[in-house]
Design a protein around this nucleic acid. Structure first.
Lengths: 197, 197, 197, 197
DNA sequence: TATGAATGAGCATTCATTCAT
DNA sequence: CATGAATGAATGCTCATTCAT
């Protein structure tokens, strides 16, 4: 029945993994065919171009992380401070073991594709923006940051995390992520309000 | 006389630019041939493989930034706090205008190449380590961070910067860098000592 | 009832248009699917192969032109000279505007397919033969050409027209057709008998 | 020394043959590689694209025929009437045997490519124009056609020839060409002046 | 009948690299 | 040292056709 649809989802899922490891441009369609055990015809039946697949993969990343990070955690039912802690812990948990080497799906594509292709760039920029908005709201809820600084501070937290994942990737250890998460926790939670200092 | 040597440097210089914009893997040898106006023979006379060129480019990036960031600024003659400010301002200055879109040469290659090629990864990891070491020393000199936290804090500052450059690249505005530099400045310099909080 | 049959005719009709513009080999089955809004299954239900469709298109061209040119005009009720004039005027009228660029359905396929495929070639050759036969009879009726030269002369008139359409196509103007029709008219009708000169 | 140049010419020469037989679009680059015994790299070293090769082939056809038909025959040293006879005989001679089936290189591409590609079309249109111009001058020299009708009549002669080659191709016999040449000869040479009748 | 998913051979093109000169 | 011709594997993609439903 919806076998076709399922098949397409499976290709995206396999491709998401491969692309996260190898990058979009270095991933050949053949890589995906081999990884998923399908033929060329099937692939191009579902995706008009490789670019189409790339976009489907990005959209899938965004769906997943928006649900997990933004909706379930940042906009969840816990007290604001707790939600922020959960976000940091979730980050930490997501980049252990083999995932350290793979890096952040968004950060990877942000760097690889921003100059090549606007449709990748815009999607990723918009995801980071939505994340920063949600975090900004939570920071305000927690009374940790004055309203007019909240977005900037949220963006800084997110970029710190991305940077930590980048350094972790090149060092092949999750230490930089733990480090940054710990510093962010301290800075955020052991002070009444950051800008008062 | 050293025309050959000079020519080689010029190729590396041109390639450094192209690779920073397009990435290493998406840069074809032909791209470099066209940009530098040389022929295939000359190229392969100087570089046994494309990989050789890539490494030469990374080494050149490292040379440049080590001199500028580490030796001239972090290990310069100004008071420690001033040196840190200079480092942040230098960062800000380096990623204005068209450079925002190009991103950080190290960050770009760190993400693109870490999983593909150990010789790129190790060089970049080692550069980030040296930078963190130098910054760590300066933080200690400035009495801003307790000795045992200095390296971690230095690495966090550096990864924050890398993350900000990444977000700036995908958003195509230097705002995230200004933002992070401003927050780092505040956090570092308007407090007696970070860890006391 | 005959919905299936009707549908088949419609496909042939759409395909005839597309093939006249793009040529047989450059027309993909997908082109026809898109132009006619049908699915692959339906197409291959009606035509076992693309070749089948091609033949159906040629047969349709032949049907149409045989009716129009041969039966209605050349074998019609007007005096022989008038019938020839009508044929020339019909030709002129058929290759105005966008049809100039599309060229002659038979001439196009004659050139494209003669060396590739005997079944196309034979059909087209046979159409040209029937046309020449009918014109030959008319020339004899009109007492314009001696019996033994009539077929050759008819074939020459037809090939002149085909050549004019060819030149018109490449020049993207109907001028060469007007030109040839006018010369043929003069040569044929302003002389008592061509071979007497 | 000029081995490279020679090699390129040889590819064009082989390709000209293959394309004349199979058409441009149906000729795959692999066909040309097989026919000429070269590798892909060599081919794409000389021609940036298949289209480049196609244009080179057309230009070669034009060079050859311009020299043979226009410069050597129509603009040669014989009396005007003789030159026209030579042109017709040259045509006849060129389309005997296997060449009947291949058809006219210009006519073939005119029909195949006019709607696909302007650079083919324009080159061919311009060749036919130059041919008509040269023939027009010769007709005037021979006092066969009044000045103001000369170009139109020249174009008609040429299109008659093209049409005859087309019909010959689809019938697989050179008879239609002989036929048209004979009729053209009669019409042109056994009358004092065509328009006087 | 009809759908559209799947097949896989084939296509034009790119690319890092080698090699004769 | 340098040239640029040549190599051939690999890439993204198209296409006529088949097949399960």
């Amino acid at each position: 029945m919806n076998k076709g649809a399922l098949a397409k989802e499976e290709i995206v899922s396999v491709a998401a993994d491969v692309i996260r490891s190898k990058g979009y441009q270095s991933t050949s369609i053949n890589d995906i065919l081999v990884s998923s055990g399908i033929g060329k015809g099937k692939f191009f039946h579902h995706f008009k171009t490789k670019h189409d697949l790339g976009i489907a993969v990005v959209d899938r990343y965004i769906d997943t992380w928006k649900t997990r990070m933004i909706e379930e955690i940042l906009q969840g039912d816990f007290p604001a401070k707790t939600r922020i802690l959960h976000m940091l812990e979730e980050t930490l948990g997501s980049f252990q073991n083999s995932n350290v080497k793979k890096g952040c799906p968004f950060g990877n594509l942000a760097i690889e594709m921003s100059e090549h292709d606007a449709s990748f760039r815009e999607r990723i920029a918009s995801f980071f923006h939505e994340w920063a908005m949600a975090l900004s709201e939570t920071l305000k809820d927690a009374n940790l940051i004055p309203e007019d600084r909240a977005y900037d501070y949220a963006e800084h937290i997110i970029s710190s995390i991305e940077g930590a994942i980048l350094i972790a990737k090149v060092k092949q250890t999750s230490k930089p992520i733990e480090n940054t998460v710990s510093i962010l926790k301290n800075t955020l939670l052991h002070q009444r309000s950051i800008s008062h200092e």
